[in-house]
Design a protein around this nucleic acid. Structure first.
Lengths: 107, 107
DNA sequence: CTCCCATATGTAGAACTTCTATATATTAAA
DNA sequence: TTTAATATATAGAAGTTCTACATATGGGAG
């Protein structure tokens, strides 16, 4: 089955994990990721919006629009139960992957 | 500059790290990676040989042919000083990356 | 001896993921 | 009023890995 271990940067996992804490809109997620301390992470809009659309198609998040105190409408994303299960899988994959990499580095 | 944090699966790093321990040929490296315990890593010949050729062009490894006790000629790869410096950089990148991912997962 | 499988290296093209570049619209500040 | 930050979006390029195939040697089974 899917041993696509080496074609996975775990952005999806990070997005789902962040959304597990609270609903956010795309632009907010970009800043959240770029503000991870000591990371220097950079995610482009051309990366994140398509990923969010895909996660939505897969049923891992649900999108809804919300306008706070003005006409400005933002598209919020909420993690679903399926998304939480998917997140658990991806976390397991990550732990297995990072443990294996660290095994080589320490061996 | 290169903040391409999310397009790096660290196969190069693993190869260089393994070659730091001892010289190996391509097929041997594949088995070495696939035998990492609890990893399920799978690397295809179509992945590893081009990467080795690239590492060679970059001057991070040197290739030499060796035939042990028969006509069978194998292409061994040896890490260079530049390769060792590159490895140190990649390890630092990995540690930064994995620490940041774990920060999100634990946060 | 011959067939098959594991070993061993290699390449072309597909597929997937992320980046670059651009477009559009709103809001706040200079 | 014009600039920058906010906010979403898409097309096409670039980078990385995978699939599939080609080729060749060596060892074991029959």
């Amino acid at each position: 089955m899917g041993s696509t271990v080496f074609q996975n940067s775990y952005i999806d996992m990070l997005l789902l994990k962040i959304l597990q804490k609270k609903d956010m809109y795309g632009y907010e997620l970009i800043q959240e990721i770029e503000n991870i301390p000591n990371s220097n992470f950079r995610v482009k809009t051309g990366t994140i919006y398509p990923i969010l659309h895909t996660l939505e198609k897969q049923g891992y998040v649900i999108a809804y629009e919300k306008s706070e105190n003005s006409r400005q409408v933002r598209k919020y994303y909420k993690i679903t139960e399926a998304g939480k299960r998917c997140l658990d899988c991806k976390i397991q994959d990550w732990e297995k992957y990072s443990a294996a990499v660290n095994y080589v580095l320490e061996g």
